[in-house]
C-alpha cells in the first residue's frame, strides 16, 4: 500500500476540528460571547510557536535571511505575548464578574 502524505492527516484534523469548533461554539451561552472572543484571541496566539522557531533560526553562514527571520520571530513573539497574557487575563477579569442572584442573602 502506498504511504499517505502526512499533510492529509493534518487536513483531516483540521476539518474535524472545524466541526468540533462548530458544535462547541454553538453551545456557548450568548451572555458569554464577549469572553468567547477574548479567549479565542488568546488561544489563536499559539502562533507564538512559529514565532519561537523563527527567532531560533540558525546563523550558520546563511547571511541576512536568518537575521530577518530572527527579527520577525522576536517581533511576533512580543505581539503574540501581548495577546496571550492580555487575552487570558482580560477573560479572567470578565468571567469573575458573572455572578448569580444571591437569594439567601436577600432573605425572601
Amino acid at each position: 500500500m502506498e504511504a499517505v502524505d502526512p499533510t492529509i492527516f493534518r487536513l483531516a484534523i483540521f476539518v474535524l476540528a472545524i466541526f468540533v469548533g462548530y458544535y462547541v461554539v454553538w453551545s456557548v451561552t450568548p451572555a458569554l460571547h464577549t469572553p468567547l472572543m477574548a479567549v479565542t484571541n488568546a488561544i489563536s496566539s499559539v502562533i507564538i510557536v512559529g514565532a519561537l522557531i523563527a527567532a531560533a533560526a540558525h546563523a550558520e553562514g546563511a547571511g541576512i535571511g536568518v537575521w530577518i527571520s530572527k527579527g520577525a520571530g522576536g517581533l511576533a513573539s512580543a505581539l503574540a505575548a501581548v495577546n496571550i497574557f492580555g487575552g487570558f487575563m482580560v477573560t479572567r477579569r470578565m468571567l469573575a464578574m458573572y455572578k448569580k442572584k444571591e437569594k439567601k442573602v436577600e432573605g425572601k
Binding site: 484571541n41 527571520s69 505581539l79 503574540a80
Partner: peptide, 30 residues
Amino acid sequence: MPQLVAAFHSLVGLAACMVAIGALYAPQAF
C-alpha cells in the same frame, strides 16, 4: 472591550505575517 478585542485581532494578524516572513527567509529552521 470591543476596541480591545479588535486591537488584539490586529496583533494576531501581524504576528501571523511575521511568522510567515520568518519562514520565508529561514526555510531550513522550519
